[in-house]
Design a protein around this nucleic acid. Structure first.
Lengths: 197, 197
DNA sequence: TTCGGTTCTTAACATACATCAATGTAGGGT
DNA sequence: ACCCTACATTGATGTATGTTAAGAACCGAA
């Protein structure tokens, strides 16, 4: 089934059997994306939360000088959304784009509310997702405040070893907050110190 | 009453009258802090969420090189906590310290659950708090990824004009992710361009 | 009031990282 | 198989920011 990953994800966390979840998910569309296709662009209102069944999404912003800044990489089994846009009803300042041919489940903005009504325990699960998100952002801030280019890169490959292989370095650089040239040099340095990869 | 700010804060957001809220808050202690007193230190488990009735708190971390990184300034009517420690039951990697003589309401970790039971609408309010938190962190990441020292400073005084006057520059610098010397230079430059403040 | 510490400023110098530019390389589309 | 475009690498150079160090201003405690 095309939503199998999402169903697993929910049933694992909700202790609610697969069939029932599958039923609840009936309203959610699945969308197939070609590489480089957009799910959201700057100034649009984010209408969905996206669950990645297959492939890889990237969320990024573009600043006044035209530079891209990668906010998030979302491989299989990740949720992506612009919560700010969804929750506060603002035009988004982000782009969400498929980096590979991908399948995503489009979760409508009211879907979580509906789930909350039908599955009381969902509220606390949603809470957990939010806390996870906060933890993730907090760690990133810490990294940006304290770590050098090399340290950031090392942290990155530690945390997302596979993503390194799936996206161009230029995007990893924009995630780390450095230029692609700098990243290339960092890698060269690490190679000297006989660092694999 | 010593918890008046918190009562206002909740009654404004919950549409629940002051007396009832006041009653619910009875279990929460109020603590008076002298300047530089700690509410939380690294490796401790964060047991409370703190609401600032009066004064100013600062949350910060210290990295391997001994450098401080300010995570958050919390003046009157702000909530502070290490959600990661509270929610995931981990030792904290942060310090929370009073920058001024302060009064805080100590909100126990189960208090929000209790409130949820007594005030159904509280769940969605809590949700809003979490989303606000996420928005705040997200904006900060954007800033760290894209803005120069000067831009960061300008954003900071725009956003927190009063805090600048209440804490030493050294701490503002550690919030912005730059050295105090750099901050001093930035300010000098801005002064040249006849920038007030 | 004086003392001692913290903070702020300034300057000279160091360095990590950015920028610019050129070349090389690889993958996708026709 | 070819070209085209995007990406990676490298070197020369520039710049913002860090580092170190010193003195000045400030402030709280004795």
């Amino acid at each position: 089934m095309e939503k199998q990953n999402l169903i697993n994800f929910l049933s694992k966390n909700l202790d609610f059997n697969e069939d029932k979840i599958s039923l609840l998910l009936e309203d959610c569309q699945v969308k197939n994306l070609k590489k480089h296709e957009f799910l959201l662009q700057e100034s649009e209102f984010c209408q969905f939360t996206f669950f990645v069944e297959k492939g890889l999404l990237r969320q990024y912003s573009i600043d006044e000088k035209g530079k891209e800044h990668t906010i998030l990489f979302a491989p299989e089994n990740w949720l992506v959304s612009d919560r700010e846009s969804v929750y506060f009803n603002q035009p988004s300042s982000y782009f969400i784009q498929a980096q590979e041919e991908s399948d995503v489940v489009m979760i409508g903005n009211n879907f979580f509310e509906i789930l909350s009504e039908k599955i009381p325990e969902f509220t606390s699960f949603n809470n957990k997702l939010l806390h996870n998100h906060i933890r993730h952002l907090q760690n990133r801030i810490n990294m940006l405040l304290s770590a050098s280019a090399e340290d950031r890169y090392l942290q990155f490959i530690e945390m997302y070893p596979d993503i390194l292989l799936r996206v161009p370095q230029i995007m990893v650089a924009s995630y780390l907050g450095i230029t692609p040239e700098s990243l290339s040099r960092v890698r060269k340095e690490l190679a000297k110190k006989n660092f694999k990869n």
